[in-house]
């Protein structure tokens, strides 16, 4: 029964995909009546103007474009034109740098907040104010103070991924069962040992949930940040193709962004399964 559920779900997924692609194809396929134009004049105009072609590309065009990018993902034709593989690598590198910095800050601080009710209350107003700020709102400030656009982008990733981890770590640490802590006390474990041998394993699933949320947010934000600062990365790629009004490339990039985001999430989900435990 279970296997057949998977099979049925896969079938429904395929059906939905087919329906979606079909609807998309039909929606853009209708080309308006060809406009009567002087051939000399028509030569100067684009296909949307001369053949009444839809400005949106169809699934076939996007598929061809994806294939073209997959065939040669790592070309490098100068500063402003690199293959999609290189662009994705730049984005992932930025996300990982900002993200790991955030882990290095959020987990210890979260521990502190979770273990000390005093710090928890003292830091709470700051966290509550900082948390809802859109990471991109930091961008102009970062550019102005850090004076380096790629570090600014990393900073924006850092600031957006720090909060979910911080709050989840604090929550996980604070809700470690009192009995376990009492057992540790009875065994006269020192605080450091308690932290690493009791609290960390107990809070790990919650901490990892925070980390999983963060990586998702970081990947969402990097695209917007790179569209702002430009230079390299998948966000810059989207911006550059938008600049050329190449919707085909924009859709292609959107699909790539989705796939990479999914992979990042799956990696975190795998880690989560590794450290989860049953009570």
């Amino acid at each position: 029964m279970h296997a057949s559920l998977t099979v049925r779900a896969a079938l429904v997924s395929l059906l939905l995909l087919g329906l979606g692609l079909g609807a998309w194809h039909l929606a853009v396929a209708r080309s308006g009546p060809a406009v009567k134009m002087d051939p000399e004049y028509a030569k100067l105009m684009g296909a949307t103007a001369t053949q009444g072609k839809s400005a949106m590309p169809g699934p076939g065009e996007v598929g061809a474009k994806i294939w073209q990018h997959l065939r040669d993902p790592f070309y490098d034709k100068g500063t402003n034109d690199k293959g999609i593989g290189i662009q994705l690598a730049y984005s992932i590198a930025r996300v990982m740098t900002g993200y790991l910095l955030a882990v290095a800050v959020a987990v210890p601080v979260g521990f502190l907040i979770g273990m000390s009710p005093l710090m928890s209350q003292a830091l709470d107003p700051f966290i509550q104010v900082m948390k809802p700020i859109s990471p991109l709102a930091w961008m102009p400030l970062a550019l102005y103070t850090i004076k380096d656009s790629s570090i600014s982008a990393i900073f924006v990733i850092f600031i957006c991924s720090v909060w979910p981890m911080l709050i989840n770590t604090a929550f996980g640490v604070a809700s470690v069962r009192k009995e376990w802590l009492n057992v540790a006390k009875t065994l006269e474990m020192n605080p450091v040992r308690t932290a690493f041998r009791v609290i960390l394993p107990a809070a790990a699933p919650t901490i990892l949930t925070g980390m999983r949320i963060s990586i998702g947010i970081a990947w969402l934000v990097i695209v917007a940040a790179e569209m702002l600062v430009g230079g390299t990365g998948i966000g810059y790629f989207v911006w550059n193709e938008w600049n050329n009004l190449s919707i085909t490339n924009v859709i292609t990039a959107i699909l790539f962004i989705g796939v990479v985001g999914m992979l990042l999430d799956q990696v975190m989900a795998y880690l989560q399964r590794l450290i989860s435990y049953a009570d």
Binding site: P140, L228, V229, Y236, W239
Partner: peptide
């Protein structure tokens, strides 16, 4: 010389002020 494409006027201003 590396010629770098930039996203907008405010960004090009800030990057030049930054000495990037």
């Amino acid at each position: 010389v590396e010629v770098v494409k930039t996203a907008g006027w405010a960004v090009i201003r800030d990057k030049t002020l930054n000495k990037e």
